[in-house]
């Protein structure tokens, strides 16, 4: 059972969306996305119609990403559980809604005022990527659980 957060967990989502006609139906997605969770940083590279690469990254790598998503571990867990329960994020747990629900900078952050907008331009594809977690059983790392 993949553990969130881990490269293995993101690889599982990558494999699901890369074989999904629905994900391809969203259209091309070209962006490099960071995820900060459980004290770790992950880099997701999307190119053309698929998730090209998943790897663990460092704080310095964030500068080269279009944007990264950061929220407390409790909210990450609630989001993933919500997706599992409903088959996809319900009205209260979409990435955009979570972005607006947090005080301060929000879920989506960036060093670049233009590249941050990739979060909006490819929003549905990124949402579908996380919604794919409904198809796996997630075990939460101790830092998140």
């Amino acid at each position: 059972m993949p553990v969130f957060p881990s490269v293995e967990w993101f690889e599982a989502l990558k494999n699901i969306v890369n074989s999904s006609p629905e994900f391809r139906h969203n259209g091309t997605i070209d962006t490099v996305v960071g995820v900060k969770a459980g004290g770790k940083i992950f880099e997701l590279t999307f190119e053309a119609f698929e998730c090209e690469r998943v790897r663990e990254a460092t704080e310095d790598d964030l500068r080269d990403m279009d944007f990264w998503m950061e929220q407390d571990d409790e909210t990450w867990k609630a989001m993933i559980e919500n997706i599992k329960t409903h088959g996809k994020a319900d009205l209260a747990f979409t990435l955009n809604t979570l972005d607006l629900s947090q005080a301060g900078e929000g879920l989506c952050r960036s060093h670049d005022g233009y590249r941050r907008d990739a979060f909006y331009r490819f929003n549905q594809s990124i949402q579908d990527f996380f919604d794919a977690s409904a198809k796996i059983d997630t075990q939460f790392a101790a830092a998140v659980a």
Partner: peptide, 29 residues
């Protein structure tokens, strides 16, 4: 659009605002 998506009252409005976000962000780009 992004606040419309958050406060949408049903899945249809959620979908409409979410997809309009993508288009509008492209116009800005």
């Amino acid at each position: 659009y992004i606040y419309g998506e958050k406060y949408a009252k049903n899945a249809a409005e959620k979908f409409i605002f979410a997809h309009s976000i993508q288009d509008k962000a492209r116009h800005i780009a």
